[in-house]
Computed example of a mutant assay.
Amino acid sequence: MKATGINFRHLYFFRVVAAEGSVTRAAERLGLAIQTVSTQLAALEQSLGKSLLTQQGRRLVPTDAGRVALTYAEQIFELGDRMQEALNEADVGRTRLTVGISDSLPKLIANRLLQAAFGIDAPVKLICVEREFETLLADLALHKLDVVLTDRTVRATASLRVFSHLLGESEMMLFGTAPLARKYGRNFPRSLTGAPMLLPTRNNALRGRIDEWLLKHEVRPDIVGEFEDNAMLNTFGRDGRGLFFAPAGLEQDLRGQFNAVPVGGAPELREQFYALSSERRIRHPAVEAILTANSGLFAA
């Protein structure tokens, strides 16, 4: 049977039943009669021509078609919630900016980039989420995010309409606590053989370039930790667990927040920073501000 249109009230009831695993519990949660929920769920299945739920033990669980429908239902109602929030923000003259931040991006860099968003005429309500890169891409493609800040680029394809905007780049330096810097700063970088070092994991865009730099200088440090999250890496560095690379432009921040001092520079080793958008032309004023921010943010 060809669907003639979805009743979103029915779809909402399906979502609640799927979450509760029971028509009875869903009816209690909704404050409705069991028959009402059951009837409207049946009406949704009839309109779609698909069975959405099946009994598994004592629970109702989604069928294959139900899992597909539930995925779209979650997106629909999340977008509805965002629409209501955006309308509420508009009533008070405030612009909502939802930003995805890659877990590999230095948080101090993310903070600097986001400062530009507060320079627009309208006040900004900032919502930041930090997730894995692939998850952020999916959320951006579904318009759950206005922009993604990351340290890697991505190519737009027919199935993935995502565009990369280079914000800038910074040369890297090796940092560590003062005792480690004194011990390994002499004869840098040859002194790094055997030095304790904290590195990003191999799925990080910077890791391959660090490995090449170490190979070029013929040094073999003792890699005592690998981290997906940059903030965690810096925290271990602050505790003196090992040396770590960071953008040279963050030297003053690292001194103040992490008691880290430079061990040596790696000017040929550079990290890029990107803003990813779902459209080539940016229309959000706060995202425009981020893209046009002074490139001096990345100067050493």
Results as ranks from 00 to 15, higher is better:
Leu114Glu: 13
Asp146Pro: 08
Val147Gly: 11
Asn88Thr: 15
Glu134Phe: 00
Gln84His: 12
Ile120Pro: 01
Glu74Trp: 06
Gln46Ala: 14
Leu44Thr: 11
Gln75Arg: 11
Thr39Glu: 04
Ile76Ser: 08
Asp91Ala: 05
Leu70Met: 15
Ala65Asp: 15
Gly66Cys: 08
Val99Asp: 13
Thr95Arg: 12
Gln55Val: 04
Ala122Asn: 08
Glu74Ala: 09
Pro62Lys: 13
Thr39Tyr: 02
Leu70Asp: 05
Ala43Cys: 10
Ala110Phe: 02
Val99His: 06
Ala26Glu: 06
Lys144Asp: 09
Ala26Ile: 09
Thr95Phe: 07
Thr36Trp: 06
Asp91Arg: 09
Ala43Val: 09
Leu30His: 15
Lys50Tyr: 14
Asp103Val: 02
Leu105His: 04
Asp81Phe: 06
Leu136Glu: 13
Thr71Lys: 10
Thr135Pro: 02
Ile76Arg: 15
Tyr72Leu: 11
Phe118Met: 08
Gly100Ala: 05
Gln56Cys: 03
Asp139Ser: 11
Gln75Asn: 10
Arg112Trp: 01
Val129Glu: 14
Ala43Trp: 07
Glu74Gly: 09
Asn88Met: 11
Gly100Cys: 12
Ala73Thr: 14
Gln115Val: 10
Gln84Met: 14
Val147Asp: 12
Ala65Phe: 13
Gly49Ala: 10
Leu105Arg: 03
Ile34Trp: 00
Arg29Ala: 13
Leu126Ile: 04
Ile101Gln: 07
Arg96Ala: 07
Ser102Glu: 08
Asp121Trp: 07
Val61Met: 15
Ala141Val: 10
Leu108Gly: 03
Leu108His: 08
Ala26His: 04
His143Val: 07
Ala90Arg: 09
His143Ala: 12
Glu134Cys: 04
Arg152Ile: 05
Ser47Met: 02
Arg112Ile: 00
Phe118Tyr: 15
Ile76Tyr: 15
Thr153Phe: 01
Gln40Met: 04
His143Glu: 09
Arg29Gln: 12
Ala27Gln: 07
Lys144Gln: 14
Leu97Ser: 07
Thr54Leu: 15
His143Gln: 08
Gln84Ile: 14
Arg58Phe: 02
Gln40Asp: 06
Lys50Asn: 08
Leu41Phe: 12
Val92Cys: 05
Leu30Lys: 12
Leu30Cys: 15
Ser102Pro: 07
Ala116His: 04
Ser47Tyr: 02
Leu52Val: 05
Leu52Thr: 11
Asp146Thr: 04
Gln35Met: 01
Leu105Trp: 01
Asp81Gln: 01
Arg152Cys: 10
Pro62Gln: 04
Glu134Gly: 00
Cys128His: 07
Leu137Arg: 14
Ala27Pro: 05
Gly119Trp: 09
Leu70Pro: 14
Gly100His: 13
Thr153Trp: 00
Glu45Ala: 11
Pro62Glu: 04
Gly93Tyr: 11
Ala42Lys: 15
Glu85Arg: 14
Ala117Thr: 09
Ala141Cys: 13
Glu28Pro: 02
Leu136Val: 10
Gly93Arg: 11
Ala26Cys: 05
Lys125Trp: 00
Lys144Trp: 02
